[in-house]
C-alpha cells in the first residue's frame, strides 16, 4: 500500500478533510441527493441541516462508503470514497441515527466488541477502553445491558464505540434526536473537546440552536444544497438582510394575538413567534411607535422592543424562499 492510512488526529498535510463534488444519488426515479458540492476543513464542526427526507443521511452514507454515489465524487482526507473505501474505514467514525448497538450485550461487551472489530487487543485494547470509559463517564453502567440504557447513555456508548480507533473524522447522524437537554449539552461539550484535538466533525441535526454552535453549516432542502458557509457570514448575506429593512424583537403579553395584529400592518415583511416574543422583519422607516399603537389597539398595552440580528433560521427561511421564487414556485 502506497497510501498508509494514519490512525491518529494528525492530518497536518491535509487541510480539507471532506470534499464533495457534485455528489448525486438517485434511487430509481427519485433523486435523493442532487449535485451537492462542499468542503469541510480539518478541525471544523460542520453542521448539516435540512428537513426530514431532504437527503442528509444519504450524504453521510455515501461519505462513509455505505452507499454507492450515482454521480459526482467525494473524498475523505484525499481518499476517494468509492475507490478507496478500505483506506477510509480506519479514518472515519460513524454514529448512526439509531445508535446501533447490540442490546443483548452489556456496555462493557459492546466496547470490547468494537475494540476487537478495529483490531485492538491486549494492553492496547485495555488502555483505549479505559480512555473511552473515562471520556464518556460510562463507568457505573459497564455491566448493564445496552438495551436497558436510557437514550442519553445509549448515545454515549454509541459514541464511545465509534471512537475506538481514534478516527480523524466523525460522522454523527442526528446524535441528539430524542435526548434530554442535559445530555444534549454534554454531547456538544464533548464535540468541542474533540474539535480542539483536531478531529473533524460532521453533524446532522434538526435543531437551529445546535446549528448556531457549529463552525460551518450547510443547509440541504429538496435534495439540493441551498447554502454552505460560516454562520456569521451567512447572516450577513444581502438576501437575509434586504436593503431598507431591519429586524426587531417585540416582547409582550398574549404574543399570538399581537402577532396577528402586527401582520396586518403595512411595512411588515415577516413576523414569527419566538417564545415569549415575536421576531419582525420590517421596513427601515417603520417606527417603534407604530408598532406600540397597533398592539394597544389589539388590547396589549405594554411592549418591549429592541433591534436584533438575523438567526440561522432566518437565513435558511430567506434562502429557501428565494430559491422557491427563483424556480417560479
Amino acid at each position: 500500500m502506497t497510501k498508509e492510512a494514519p490512525s491518529t488526529f494528525a492530518f497536518a498535510r491535509c487541510e480539507v478533510m471532506i470534499e464533495c463534488d457534485k455528489l448525486t444519488k438517485r434511487f430509481g426515479q427519485f433523486t435523493a441527493v442532487d449535485q451537492v458540492s462542499f468542503s469541510v476543513a480539518r478541525g471544523s464542526i460542520f453542521g448539516f441541516l435540512g428537513p426530514n427526507g431532504s437527503g442528509k443521511s444519504t450524504v453521510i452514507r455515501m461519505l462513509c462508503g455505505l452507499l454507492q454515489p450515482t454521480g459526482g465524487r467525494a473524498t475523505i482526507a484525499g481518499f476517494d470514497v468509492v475507490k478507496e473505501t478500505e483506506s477510509i474505514k480506519s479514518l472515519i467514525g460513524y454514529m448512526s441515527q439509531k445508535f446501533s448497538l447490540y442490546d443483548e450485550l452489556t456496555v462493557s461487551e459492546n466496547l470490547n466488541f468494537y475494540c476487537r472489530l478495529y483490531g485492538l487487543s491486549g494492553s492496547v485494547l485495555a488502555t483505549r477502553r479505559a480512555e473511552l470509559i473515562s471520556l464518556t463517564h460510562l463507568e457505573p453502567y459497564l455491566e448493564r445491558r445496552a438495551g436497558l440504557l436510557s437514550g442519553g447513555w445509549r448515545q454515549r456508548l454509541a459514541m464511545a464505540c465509534s471512537l475506538v480507533h481514534k478516527p480523524g473524522v466523525l460522522f454523527l447522524d442526528e446524535p441528539t434526536a430524542g435526548i434530554d437537554p442535559v445530555a444534549r449539552r454534554e454531547l456538544w461539550d464533548l464535540l468541542f473537546e474533540f474539535s480542539g484535538l483536531g478531529m473533524t466533525l460532521f453533524v446532522t441535526t434538526h435543531y437551529m440552536d445546535e446549528a448556531e454552535r457549529c463552525s460551518h453549516v450547510g443547509y440541504i432542502h429538496l435534495s439540493k444544497l441551498v447554502v454552505c458557509g460560516v454562520p456569521d457570514e451567512l447572516k450577513a448575506l444581502p438576501v437575509v438582510n434586504p436593503p431598507g429593512t431591519k429586524r426587531l424583537d417585540v416582547t409582550c403579553d398574549r404574543v399570538t394575538t399581537g402577532l396577528q395584529a402586527i401582520r396586518r400592518l403595512p411595512g411588515v415583511r415577516n413576523a414569527t413567534v419566538f417564545g415569549q416574543s415575536m421576531h419582525l422583519l420590517v421596513e427601515q422607516t417603520m417606527s417603534e411607535e407604530t408598532i406600540r399603537t397597533e398592539l394597544a389597539r389589539a388590547g396589549i398595552p405594554r411592549a418591549d422592543i429592541h433591534p436584533i440580528g438575523p438567526s440561522l433560521e432566518d437565513v435558511f427561511v430567506a434562502l429557501t424562499q428565494q430559491r422557491a421564487n427563483g424556480t417560479g414556485k
Partner: peptide, 13 residues
C-alpha cells in the same frame, strides 16, 4: 433490520 450492519460495514471488518 436493527441497523447494526451499517456499523459493521463502516468498520474494517
Amino acid at each position: 433490520e436493527r441497523g447494526t450492519l451499517e456499523q459493521l460495514l463502516v468498520s474494517p471488518l
